[in-house]
Structures are given as C-alpha cells and as structure tokens.
Amino acid sequence: MNTKPHTREKSYSCEVCCSCFPNKQYLATHMRTHTREKPYSCEVCGFSFTMKNTMLQHMKTHIGKKPYSCDVCGSIFARKYNMLQHMQTHTGEKPYFCEVCGFSFTRKHHLLQHMRTHTGDKPYSCKDCGSSFTRKDGLVIHMLTHTGEKPYSCKVCGYSFTRKNYLLQHMRTHTGEKPYSCEVCGSSFTRKDSLVIHMRTHTGEKPYSCKVCGYSFICKSNLLQHTRTHTDSTKLDTPPN
C-alpha cells in the first residue's frame, strides 16, 4: 500500500516565463507582473496595486496604524514584511545575489533593478524626449527637467533641488559635515563620490581614457576638459574656407 502523502501538482503554467502555480487564481495574480495591471487602487491617494491584500496593507499608512515594531531600534511599520526587511539592516543579511557580478542586496526588487545594469533593460521612458530609465523613480526625477520643478528647498539659503539627496548634500555646505573619510590619509568629504575619486590618488586608478591620445584620468570631468584640447587644436589646424 502506498503511504506517501498526496501532493497536488502545479498544473497552471505562465505562457510568458513558464512559472508554475497550484491554481488559476495564483496564475492570474502572477500574470499582472507581466502585464503591469494594477486593479486595486487606494481610495485616499490613488496608488494602485496588483494584489488586494497589498492595497489593504498600504491603507494602514494613511490611518497611521503600524502594528509591527523592530526589537532592536524600535522603528515601527505598517507591514510585517517591511519590518523583516528592516531587520536586515541590523543583521547585515543580504540574501539576494546577482549571478553575474556577485553583488548582494537586502531586497529582491533591488536585485531586479540591478540586473538591468547588466541586461541594459530600461523599461521606463519619457514621453517628451524619449529618454529611458532602469527605474521608475529615475523617470520621475527626469520629468522635473521638463517641468522645471525643484521641490526640495534649502531652509538656510532658499536654493532648490530636483532630488532630496542633492538637498542633503547641499546642506553639508552649511553644517560643515564631511561624513566620508579616507582610510589612508584621513581626508574627509561631503559626498561619497568625491571620496571615491580621491581614493584613486592612492590606488593610481585612472578609469577615464582619451580616445584620441590614450591619456587617462581619475575622473570624467578631467577627461572632458582634456578632450577640449584636441577639439580646439583641430579648429586651429583647419584652414579657413
């Protein structure tokens, strides 16, 4: 007599990616990841979702209900899933690995976004100029270049920015904060990318090369300045018509 427990086979397959599901409802929900259909909308802000329970969880952000708290730092969350993701900032766990370069991430959607740097996929396009982006927030920020909107303003000097991180970087010019320090010589910087460029003075790395003469530079701006020496000399060497 066969005593093995009965297991239901996954009989519903996605025609796009061949993923299998135990019932038709799960398949229908999965298909929305391909069609980008979001039939469940928030009555407060209009934000849309592929699943009803995700929308209901989102509604808690409007009523202020945050029943899940972090045991380490006390941060509170509307969804248990968000709390579990937050916990990874304390544990350092990054369970999602890129099979191409080995880079790891705390969240699956961060990995999916990263994979586009390898595939070149840019699914978000600007209707005004056709520029494409790997992430939706990249498109949203780009659109500000067309509207001229700069929603982030400095309370000290009134200067405005298209991105919040640009404002935060700018604020350091007022506070004098330089949170990024060189481990070799102790020099400190207001921006991380400035530290990265500085480190090349220690490592000798010069990743930006001139296509005309092969001369290399530690940063792109130095390369752009250098290339003008070629274009200017070309203009001088070209006889007038």
Rank of each mutant, 00 (worst) to 15 (best):
N2E: 14
T3S: 14
H6T: 13
H6R: 14
E9Y: 04
K10G: 03
S13K: 15
C14K: 11
C14I: 12
F21Q: 03
F21C: 09
P22T: 10
K24P: 06
A28M: 13
A28D: 11
T29H: 09
R32I: 07
R32H: 07
R32F: 09
R32K: 15
T33L: 14
T35K: 09
K52W: 12
N53P: 07
N53I: 02
N53F: 12
M55T: 07
M55H: 03
K65P: 00
Q88R: 15
P95W: 05
C98A: 01
C101Q: 12
C101Y: 12
F105P: 05
T106F: 07
R107I: 07
H110I: 00
L112V: 13
H114D: 03
H114Q: 08
M115L: 15
G120P: 07
D121R: 06
K122A: 04
K122Q: 13
P123T: 06
S125M: 11
S125T: 10
G138T: 05
V140H: 04
V140R: 04
H142T: 05
T145S: 09
T147H: 00
G148I: 05
S153Y: 07
G158N: 11
S160M: 00
H170I: 07
R172F: 02
T175I: 11
E177I: 08
K178P: 00
K178T: 04
P179L: 03
S181L: 11
S181W: 10
T190E: 01
K192C: 03
K192T: 00
L195M: 02
L195G: 04
L195F: 02
M199T: 03
M199P: 03
E205G: 05
E205Q: 09
K206D: 04
Y208T: 05
S209G: 06
V212P: 11
G214M: 10
S216P: 09
K220Q: 07
H226W: 05
T229L: 10
T231D: 02
D232A: 13
L236T: 10
